[in-house]
Amino acid sequence: MHPAPSVILFTALSGLGFGLLAFLGMGLPDVTGWVAFVFFFIAFALSVGGLLASTFHLGNPKNAMKAFSQWKTSWLSREGCLAVASLILMGLYAIGVIFFDTKLTQIGWIGALLSIGTVFTTSMIYAQLPTIPRWNHPLTSAYFLSLSIAGGALLAGQATAAGVLLLIAGAVQLLAWFDGDKRFAQRGHTIETATGLGDIGKVRMFEPPHTGTNYLLHEMVYMVARKHAQKLRIIAMVFMVILPAAILLLLPSNHMLALIAVISHLGGLFASRWLFFAEAEHVVGLYYGQR
């Protein structure tokens, strides 16, 4: 799949933002006034900024409001609804702790649950698609959720918890990579099933339908060099998980080191998310002799 920068930014930043909102909703860290303002500002900037970034890849964003209507069947619509609901509830909670020194505990907990729910709906947009075997698995949700929660803990300054959660997210990431590598073959989609011509013999593409490229090839038949993918996996794992977890678990906590951990995590997260899209193989590639 085409790794569109807008979608990489959206999933990475909003994941972190909703993860942080979840921790703030649970009262971790227990802050009020200006300190709470800074935490909530970061959380809202990431989650709302991410949602806004996601509209950049729309062909026709003026209809975006209509995307709240189809929650009965569409995970994308559900995501929009849950995102707005959690932002409203966490906004109320934020007003309480920032301006009135009052913790609306129940609203905070519901907001936290909805925030995690939003990340789950984001993951389901990808995990629901049988046309992309690498994504079509519960590990996709586990990958999004574990990273969102670990990143949230990191931003919320929960050093030890964040270290452990990062290691868990790293394990999920490894599993998602190595299990995902095998899934296209396991599902048995081949150029023979795509064309229905397998009964006659071995099929290969003779001529593509056009000499030029098209939307499908650009969007869904993106090919990433395997060699680079392996390097990027190592980069993602080191910066997203190993370096920040080592800082949080092994070194004494201070603000400078925490900042390094956050920046490192963010860089690694972008690499991981780029790979999430770039390595995903859509079955339509079979009609173009790719896969």
């Binding site: 964003p61 995307a67 698609l129 499908l216 339509v284």
Partner: peptide, 21 residues
């Protein structure tokens, strides 16, 4: 009139039947 051009339907189609103009 209602389409936002998100492209998700094209991702969901195994046959490459949908193209975003």
């Amino acid at each position: 009139k209602d389409c936002i051009g998100c492209g998700l339907c094209a991702w969901a189609c195994p046959y490459g039947a949908r193209e975003l103009d």
